[in-house]
């Protein structure tokens, strides 16, 4: 796989062009589908094929966004949900990594923890929501805890598995150099697990959104989850639809950002 410096042949140029054309076609189709979806939604609403009161409508959603932006409350809601998600995600991922490292370090602890992890993993964490609320009050704490709890156990389990899959011979190699256990961890186990960690991070991001929104459904005074529940209760579907749309855009942006960071970190692939 040396750098190919020879001139590109005509045949190869044709091939590249074909690949490029296909890529462009895919992109155009994707964007058209999106535009068509919103256009049809709008038209169906205007022609009263669907009831805008129940289904909302792109134009009404734009109006809602403008209205909610006027007093700045939209940004407060977005910020509340975003910050809760990021904090819950960061705490869940970080403590997950730390615990996985500890379990890697002590085989005894790992064996002891195994059945508990299995049970906790199969428990739907949402069920713990009311308990968190009772314990922590109705502020942001129980919501952040939901965002944390939902990603913690999967992180521990997937990282511990990842750590164990690192090639034994790589560790043997380090031992021939006289490496300590700590050096084996930092020079080999952790860097070798970066792809595993990155994929856990991507999954956790998604899970933390779920945890936080559910938390906000249960108890909250602000946030997109609050807006959705509030809009539903007062039958303002415009607010609900708008919040869902904003939520999906935020989640997608976050994912794109993570993929970008992943590419920057894993530069050897």
């Amino acid at each position: 796989m040396y750098e190919a410096t020879q001139k590109i042949s005509k045949e190869h140029r044709e091939f590249l062009k074909k690949v490029k054309r296909k890529e462009i076609a895919i992109k155009i189709t994707q964007i058209s589908l999106l535009i068509a979806f919103f256009a049809l939604w709008e038209i169906a609403g205007r022609l009263k094929l669907i009831d805008p009161f129940l289904f909302s409508q792109p134009s009404r959603m734009i109006k809602t966004i403008i209205n909610l932006s006027k007093d700045g409350s939209l940004f407060t809601h977005i910020w509340v949900t975003l910050s809760e998600t990021l904090i819950g995600f960061a705490l869940g991922t970080f403590s997950g990594i730390v615990i996985a490292v500890l379990l890697w370090w002590s085989d005894f602890a790992s064996k002891v923890a195994e059945p508990y992890l299995i049970v906790l993993n199969s428990l739907p964490k949402i069920a713990l929501g009311p308990i968190f609320i009772v314990w922590m009050g109705n502020g942001e704490a129980p919501i952040i805890t939901m965002g944390l709890a939902i990603s913690l156990i999967v992180t521990i389990i997937s990282l511990e598995t990842g750590f164990k899959q690192v090639d034994e011979d790589k560790i043997k190699l380090l031992k021939t150099f006289g490496a300590t256990k700590f050096q084996i961890l930092t020079k080999c186990i952790l860097p070798a697990s970066i792809p595993t960690i990155m994929s856990a991070i991507k999954i956790n991001m998604g899970l933390s959104w779920v945890g936080v929104i559910t938390g906000e459904f249960l108890v909250s005074k602000a946030g997109l989850g609050y807006l959705i529940v509030y809009g539903g209760q007062v039958f303002k579907l415009d607010i609900v639809m708008t919040s869902v749309l904003i939520l999906s855009i935020l989640a997608a942006l976050m994912y794109v950002l993570l993929v970008y960071i992943e590419k920057k970190i894993i530069k050897w692939q």
Partner: peptide
Amino acid sequence: YMLQKDHLFEWR
């Protein structure tokens, strides 16, 4: 010690 595979670390 030289092992069967080179075991170069792919991230380095």
